[in-house]
Nucleic acid binder design. Sequence first.
DNA 1: CCGCATCCTCATGGATACTG
DNA 2: CAGTATCCATGAGGATGCGG
Lengths: 208, 208
Amino acid sequence: MRSYGQYCGLARSLEVVGDRWNLLIVRQLLVAPARYRDLVDGLPGIATNLLADRLRDLEESGVVERRLAGSGSVVEYVLTPWGSELREPIESLIRWSTPLMVRGPASDSFRPEWLALAVPALLDKRVKVRRAATVGLDIGDQRLQLRATRAGFEVGPQDGRERDATLRADPAYVLGLAAGALTLSDAHALGVVEVEGDESVVRTVFAA
Amino acid sequence: MRSYGQYCGLARSLEVVGDRWNLLIVRQLLVAPARYRDLVDGLPGIATNLLADRLRDLEESGVVERRLAGSGSVVEYVLTPWGSELREPIESLIRWSTPLMVRGPASDSFRPEWLALAVPALLDKRVKVRRAATVGLDIGDQRLQLRATRAGFEVGPQDGRERDATLRADPAYVLGLAAGALTLSDAHALGVVEVEGDESVVRTVFAA
DNA sequence: CCGCATCCTCATGGATACTG
DNA sequence: CAGTATCCATGAGGATGCGG
């Protein structure tokens, strides 16, 4: 990106991450380290030459590191510690986007992994979880887990933990649920995730 | 901006504010509502056709409002309530930029008004102000006030309030001071602004 | 296959001149 | 003063090539 030539933190940040696709690449790497192919898949619409360019730029500027994973000759991209600190501004932008999300996906593509960032960003830290619960989310062909503990919310890949229930989830519904908890908790209400039995019923209760 | 075609809050945010110059325009309007000429001056390097384009875009997407100010026929640009909520992500990016600011302005241009955003963003809310103080900052030909109260820090244009001291300030010094308070308070120290006498001496004390 | 590099076309950005 | 109009330079997007 061409320099703005301004001694301003925002301008200098944007010279590093303001280029098209850059923050979306960081989004993918915040979910998990990834190989080139994972990034191509997780960034529908990106041209491969751009991805290669951007990865070089981000590496040069110290946001991303290229490392050899596993058995040796496999290249993997990881965020540097400084790069990981982009979680904050990215979560802020996700919160800011709620008015843009209410109309649903329409014809846009969707990847379940994006919820792993969005849901914790939207769920206000002040929301009290009454009863810890782990809910399986079946979205398309992927399965995620939404974990509600007294410490907060977390969304991640399926792990070995017990599920209290399974929900065949629509992405817009999950985001709406999270955003609802955010909005209502701003009004000093409590968002509570409750699981009924061991079946596919998840109820969100907002109590004053 | 061309759509990313992704049902993701970050992607949809960037479709609104991801275009070059957009966030910097919002930065200017976060400081104060402004006329076209103010924006041209506050955004050194922008081409006038781009500014006009971007203002139209931002108006269409509901970030900016064009309104008639003062005695009638004078157009002024203001942030909508939703647009004002961009303060959060912008402040996050300013915090993220600290490693990029330590090398100083070099040949970049600088406007004192930018401190009005950066300093409150950098000063950690947990920093305890021991003694309330109002310090005048002479930067170039503009004069600002840094107000430290028990409620937090604030930087704004000169107002009628009494000054405890006046500081001929270098922008990099002011930013470094604020960033220092952020860093050290993260390490559980306290940043304290102290004013000595009524002269041009400002001392920053960090106590464990 | 995976991880890019090249080539080409078209959209966007930048500088400057100009106008109501 | 508040923008348009114009022209050129740069960057994005898409297809394809190619070595490991």
